[in-house]
Simulated assay, not measured.
Amino acid sequence: MPTGVAIRDVREQLFAAAERVLLRAGPNALTSRAVTTEAGCAKGVLHRHFADFDAFLAELVLDRVRGVEERGAALRAAAGTGTVADNVTNALTDLFGPVALGVLGLITSRDALRARLRRTTPTGVPLLTEAGAALAGYLAAERELGRLAPDSDTDTLAFTLVGSGHLLFAGREDASRDAVRKVVRSVVAGVVRES
């Protein structure tokens, strides 16, 4: 791209380019040069908007975290509709898409990125921690509606579901919806009180 030409939505374009590189070539291929080449802009564009490449990567992860939090709010709003197992199956299938799995690989492969992310997510793994909180909030709403047993430990259920979902999707191109549903039903079987 020629110098001096304004780029609209630079952050979003750079994030989208980073995701494409991540999906195509994995976390080790993600460099500032690879991102800017993919975005079709000069390397300096990235550095005008971010202090350094690790700051860019941290913002990419935090942007994806905000997406998880937004979907969590929508999930909580769905409490009382459909079935608990179907709602959780849909949420896990949505959460563990290829981009999220790529971002999780990025987080685990870069020490400097993990250290920077500790400022906002002091414990756990970003994305997984927020997904667990979102699911726990949804399950608590279902418990309040009487669709889960009153003594349900929604935090433990949520983190069990997120951990199981991550293991189910990790390293696979396509975990089947039926496999996800089977895990979800097994985890919530003792607490669901739906008719």
Results as ranks from 00 to 15, higher is better:
residue 5 V to A: 13
residue 8 R to A: 07
residue 8 R to T: 03
residue 9 D to T: 00
residue 11 R to E: 14
residue 13 Q to F: 02
residue 13 Q to K: 10
residue 17 A to P: 06
residue 17 A to K: 04
residue 18 A to R: 02
residue 19 E to F: 06
residue 21 V to C: 04
residue 22 L to E: 00
residue 23 L to K: 11
residue 27 P to G: 00
residue 28 N to E: 08
residue 29 A to N: 04
residue 32 S to T: 01
residue 34 A to G: 08
residue 35 V to D: 10
residue 35 V to K: 10
residue 39 A to M: 13
residue 40 G to K: 03
residue 40 G to I: 00
residue 41 C to I: 15
residue 41 C to T: 15
residue 43 K to I: 09
residue 43 K to H: 14
residue 45 V to F: 05
residue 45 V to E: 13
residue 51 A to M: 03
residue 52 D to I: 00
residue 54 D to T: 14
residue 56 F to S: 05
residue 57 L to Q: 02
residue 58 A to P: 04
residue 59 E to V: 05
residue 61 V to W: 04
residue 64 R to K: 12
residue 65 V to D: 08
residue 66 R to Y: 07
residue 67 G to R: 12
residue 71 R to W: 14
residue 73 A to Y: 00
residue 75 L to F: 07
residue 76 R to P: 05
residue 78 A to L: 11
residue 78 A to I: 04
residue 83 T to L: 02
residue 91 A to G: 11
residue 91 A to S: 12
residue 92 L to I: 09
residue 93 T to P: 06
residue 93 T to A: 14
residue 95 L to W: 08
residue 96 F to Y: 15
residue 97 G to L: 15
residue 97 G to F: 10
residue 98 P to V: 06
residue 99 V to E: 06
residue 108 T to I: 07
residue 108 T to A: 13
residue 108 T to N: 06
residue 110 R to V: 00
residue 111 D to V: 00
residue 112 A to R: 08
residue 112 A to P: 04
residue 114 R to H: 02
residue 115 A to E: 14
residue 116 R to E: 12
residue 117 L to H: 06
residue 117 L to D: 03
residue 117 L to K: 01
residue 122 P to G: 08
residue 126 P to L: 13
residue 127 L to C: 05
residue 128 L to V: 03
residue 130 E to M: 04
residue 130 E to G: 04
residue 131 A to N: 02
residue 134 A to E: 15
residue 135 L to E: 10
residue 139 L to Y: 05
residue 139 L to C: 13
residue 139 L to E: 10
residue 139 L to I: 08
residue 140 A to Y: 07
residue 143 R to S: 03
residue 152 S to G: 13
residue 152 S to Y: 11
residue 155 D to P: 03
residue 155 D to H: 04
residue 158 A to H: 01
residue 158 A to S: 10
residue 159 F to A: 02
residue 159 F to Y: 15
residue 161 L to Y: 01
residue 163 G to N: 15
residue 163 G to A: 15
residue 163 G to M: 12
residue 178 D to M: 10
residue 179 A to W: 01
residue 181 R to D: 12
residue 183 V to Q: 14
residue 183 V to H: 07
residue 186 S to V: 07
residue 186 S to E: 14
residue 187 V to Y: 04
residue 192 V to T: 09
residue 193 R to V: 03
